[in-house]
Amino acid sequence: MFRRFIAYRRVSTEQQGRSGLGLEAQEAAVQGFLAAQGSQAKLLATYTEIESGKRDDRPELTKALEHVRLTGATLIIAKLDRLSRDAHFLLGLQKAEVDFVACDMPSADRFTVGIMAMLAQKERELISERTKAALAAAKARGRRLGNPNGAAHLRPYGNARAIEAVRLDAQERAERLRRIINELRSSGVTSANGLAKALNERHVATARGGTWTARSVLNVMERL
């Protein structure tokens, strides 16, 4: 009798997705594991997620889990330790109540990932608290946060990866603001000045912790 598998793999950026960095290694780990199972192992499908670990929506993971439920297959991932700080993934895996196997930790089970999820969530909270405290302390000392030229100051050094990282971070924040901006526009607040005022009234901070202006709203709208 065939043992059926659905593979799920994830990388953090579009650049990694295009280059295959990370994906090829995950594919090799999955294929190696399946080969060790013999001819009875059958891979039904592979779902690939290109998402930042900061985001909580995982559409490809949702599809993979649904496919697993429909077929009675086993979800297979290459490296559980690579996802051990992704609380959303781990909780989803635990709550899905499906069979799964991690190539690097074949003995892991729902109890294991439940503990990992709690630790991952706590670590994210601690990182956030430390970052906010450090920024507040710097601001209290009168230090201006950020660079007025954005990522442009990195170009003379040829640091294309750093520039791309800044761009992706700005894009991710814009995506997180999409829902609230759409709600405001649906309620009749459509001008940049009106959106800026509404965001400030809701205490939504800008990426640098400041207040919204029409220009900063337009910057976000352009990214969306």
Rank of each mutant, 00 (worst) to 15 (best):
I76A: 00
E14M: 07
A36H: 10
D81V: 13
V68H: 08
R110N: 04
R124I: 06
A45W: 12
A117I: 04
A134R: 04
L90R: 00
A87Y: 04
A25R: 13
I181S: 03
K132E: 13
E129P: 05
D56A: 14
R124P: 04
E97P: 01
N159A: 15
R223V: 04
L145D: 07
L218Q: 13
S187Q: 10
A25P: 01
I127E: 15
T206S: 15
L61S: 09
V98D: 06
L65A: 05
A28L: 11
A102L: 02
L126V: 13
T74G: 02
S216Q: 13
F100K: 00
P59A: 13
E125H: 03
T71H: 12
E24M: 08
K197I: 05
E222I: 12
A140D: 13
G188R: 03
G17V: 01
L21P: 03
V166N: 02
H67K: 12
H203L: 09
L145T: 04
E175D: 10
E175S: 14
D169W: 03
G22L: 08
A108M: 04
T74C: 08
Y47A: 07
M221L: 15
P156W: 06
V98S: 02
S39E: 15
T71V: 08
L154R: 03
G22Y: 06
W212V: 12
E125P: 00
L224K: 06
E49H: 06
V98K: 00
M1W: 06
E97W: 08
R124D: 11
A170Q: 11
A136S: 11
T112V: 10
G17K: 10
T62A: 15
L154P: 10
I76M: 05
S128Q: 12
R69A: 14
K139V: 07
A207S: 14
R141V: 10
S187N: 10
N147A: 03
A137I: 08
S19M: 01
Q16W: 05
A73V: 05
G210F: 10
R58N: 08
Q37G: 09
I180M: 08
S84Q: 13
L80S: 01
N182L: 14
T213H: 11
G158M: 06
A36I: 07
T190Q: 14
G38I: 10
E172W: 00
S186Y: 01
D81Q: 11
S216W: 10
T213W: 09
M105V: 15
L83M: 14
K197T: 10
R3E: 08
R10C: 04
C103N: 01
S39R: 15
A45V: 09
L23A: 05
I181R: 00
